[in-house]
Structures are given as C-alpha cells and as structure tokens.
Write a protein that binds this DNA or RNA. Structure first.
Length: 263
DNA sequence: CGGGCCTCCTGGTAGC
DNA sequence: TGCTACCAGGAGGCCC
C-alpha cells in the first residue's frame, strides 16, 4: 500500500495521535527491519527520552523528529503501517517496532512482511542522500520545467521511470497506473517518445492525483469516481466507458490500464 | 544498458 | 479438506 498518499495519511495520523509524545523506551521484535548498521540498542539510545515533536515526509519515507539526536525514518515497504494505542491495550500482530511513551500509550509500527526499513538520520537531507532519493514528488521546487527536464529524452519505459525513487520520490506501482491513465499515456511508452509538452501534462496530472489521494486517504475517504484505482477495486470497468480494464505486467509489476484511453 | 527475472519476506486465495 | 502455486501497493541485484 504505502506510496506517497498513504505515507501522507500516516503522517497525518501520527500528528493526530502520537505527536508530541516522549519516548520512555522502545522494543524491536525483529532486528531484520533495522537499517544496515543500526541495532536495537543504538536506536534505543537515540530515542530514549526523546520528544517526538514534528514529522516530515520524503517520498515514501516518514520522518519523525526525535529531540536533538535526529530523525527516525520509517519506510513501510509493501505492508507496513503505524498504529497508536492506549496503555493496557495489546499491540497489533506483526508489530516489529514499538515505542512506549511516558504516559503509557504506545506507537506500533506493523509490518506483515519484512519488507520495510527503520533508519535514523541526523537530518532529512541526510536520509535522502543515504537512500538516494530524488526530490519529493510534491515538492514545489519540482515544477513543470524541472520535471519535464528530468524525463524528456530519457531512456526506458515511462512507468518504471515514474517509479524510480532516485529521480522523483513517492510514486509506486499503484499511483503510477493512476497518473498514466489520467495523462492518457501507455505505461510501456518510451520516455523519449514523449515530448516536453506531454511531460508537463504528466507533471500537472501527477500533482493533482497525489494531492487528491493524500487528502482523501488522510480523511479516510474513497478516491473520486473516475479514478482508475477506484474502478480497479470495484467493477474493473474503464471509467470512460471502454469496458474491461486490462491487467498486464510492466517490468514485473502488475499494471492496470485502458488501451483505448492510453496510447 | 534497458528490460526481464530473481530474491527478500509472509500470508491470503485460487485452483486442483 | 489439503496442498501447491501464485500473487501482493517495495526495492536491489544480476544477467544478457
């Protein structure tokens, strides 16, 4: 699940539920979830007594400011999510990282599969560098000019390019499909087959889709009708009336599209 | 060097 | 019912 809009909703959730809180201690139930070089003990040293005061998001990473020591960085992989719960309640299943707060409440980070990452960085910029992340997809600094310049003339297919986190961070398999559907571009189109104008359109569509989805997810609402993703979860019909959506694979990933709408 | 394929993980589900 | 095969919203690595 967790792509940019989902992580944005996690960020809103943390700000409603868990910020600010002060960490009394933490528990790591499976160290495989920790970034290379990070240990439960080391993380504990950095987080103990830290006041979680602020959050940021960069692409699919959620960063939580932990006092003076730096930023806890959470990457949710395919199955992760945070869950705040009250003193005395049981943690959800598959809780791999648990923060116990001084008031007795808890924040669990849940991963069913171990495809996720807990990291720690001095600054958000340091994390982006360590993880080779491009600018966030909703960063205002990524305007249409800059966006088009990054993709126009590039080799390879459009969909994997949009999913490349080192170019622009935040778009995953699902929202790439939505953006391409709304932009009317086939996922297997070559990047260098699209002109600058098409990439500027892609930029506009990308921002609208990611902002709309972030807001809806944060409010617990469904995506608007007319969205491919909503059709995919319901009747599987093209929102523009072209019948069954197609399901195929692009660079190994499940891909939904309408070949009448997307060329 | 772009694209296909494999692997890491775990669990749900379709199919036999 | 029981077992297997495949699939899932991420990402890195390898090979041709």
């Amino acid at each position: 699940m967790p792509e940019l809009p989902d992580v944005a909703s996690f960020e809103a959730y943390l700000n409603r539920a868990a910020i600010p809180h002060t960490v009394a201690r933490l528990s790591v139930s499976d160290e495989r979830i920790l970034d290379d070089g990070l240990t439960a003990q080391g993380l504990g040293r950095r987080l103990k007594k830290a006041r979680l005061s602020e959050t940021r998001r960069h692409g699919k990473y959620l960063l939580v400011h932990a006092g003076n020591s730096g930023w806890l960085a959470l990457h949710f992989g395919m199955t992760g999510y945070p869950r705040f719960y009250d003193a005395g309640d049981d943690p959800p299943g598959h809780t791999r990282l648990r923060l116990d707060f001084t008031d007795g409440s808890h924040l669990a980070i849940v991963w069913q599969r171990m495809l996720g990452d807990v990291a720690f960085a001095e600054t958000p910029g340091e994390l982006a560098e360590a993880k080779d992340l491009g600018p966030d997809a909703l960063d205002d600094g990524v305007d249409a000019d800059r966006f088009a310049a990054m993709y126009t003339g590039r080799k390879g297919m459009v969909k994997p390019a949009l999913m490349d986190q080192s170019t622009v961070a935040g778009i995953g398999n699902v929202y790439a499909d939505e953006i391409l559907f709304q932009a009317g571009v086939h996922p297997k189109r070559a990047c260098n087959d699209l002109g600058e104008k098409a990439w500027r359109t892609m930029h506009r569509v990308m921002r609208r889709v990611l902002r709309t989805a972030s807001r809806r997810r944060s409010e617990g609402k469904r995506l608007p009708s007319g969205y491919l993703l909503r059709a995919r979860e319901t009747d599987g019909q093209c929102p523009n009336g072209h019948g069954d959506l197609e399901k195929t694979k692009v660079s190994g990933r499940a891909t939904w599209l309408c070949s009448r709408c997307q060329a």
